[in-house]
Amino acid sequence: MGSLLPKLPLDRWIDALVDVMKDSLEGLFDLISAIIGNSVAGLSTGLTALPPWGFIILVTLIAWKISTRSIALFTFAGLFLIDNLGYWQNTMFTLALVLTSALISIILGVPIGILCGKSDKAQNVVTPILDFMQTMPAFVYLIPAVTFFSLGAVPGVIASVIFAMPPTIRLTNLGIRQVPKDLIEAADSFGSTGGQKLIKVQLPMAKPTIMAGINQSIMLSLSMVVIASMIGAKGLGADVYRAVTQLKIGEGFEAGLAIVILAIMLDRLTQHIGKKKESRGRI
């Protein structure tokens, strides 16, 4: 086959594209880098502003308030264990990383999801891009991310966002499309504008589904922390990475356990944010 057609120089095209982008979009990359870098730093400073026990009590109380007692209990015990094992600082940094990428996923993903939900054309364009983002191995875009944003937390966040944003977009889209047709007709028949229909009917109805998408985005961005650590992002991922490369099985387990605790905590809490409010109105 190769003799019929010369190989497409796809690799060289991509290299050239990356070079051009690096030169021409440098200002933009610097800006993005500054925003992400500052928000990660700010968040991790904020999270460590309270002493560990203060933070533990605060989060436990929040968990108690918005979810069940057993989740609050788990939160308390889990965070206590993390602090006891000596991973507090890195856990907070990882949390800052995850929250930043989750936030970006929501800020970008929800509007894109709404657009897809309202327009078939947008959906047709966006869906293959999402497939690409979710299935392209992360290492492939880690390298250009480093080229554009240099080493550290920023390319880690970018990689997390690429991997973690699709569920938010997909489920927002799904949620908007799943609003029963007769409710849309009702909203239209009373003369709602597109915006009124969105805010008063579609978004409230789609909220549980959107929340499930956001929950997935948070979990996926947490799963990226180890990979992000390979390009210099600090935190629990770096602990795991170092332990693995130095064959320190016990240490690796500890850091891994801290990630699991963080994951379960974030999962249960975000799952309850949408639901609890929903059911509270009913008697």
Partner: peptide, 28 residues
């Protein structure tokens, strides 16, 4: 016209489940 002249009642009621009865009625 939809706001002032014509209103519709639906077979499966099409009430907004996230709104109270009063909020449903005042939607228009």
């Amino acid at each position: 016209v939809r706001r002032k002249k014509m209103s519709m009642v639906f077979q499966r009621f099409a009430l907004f489940p996230h709104r109270t009865v009063l909020e449903n009625v005042e939607y228009g």
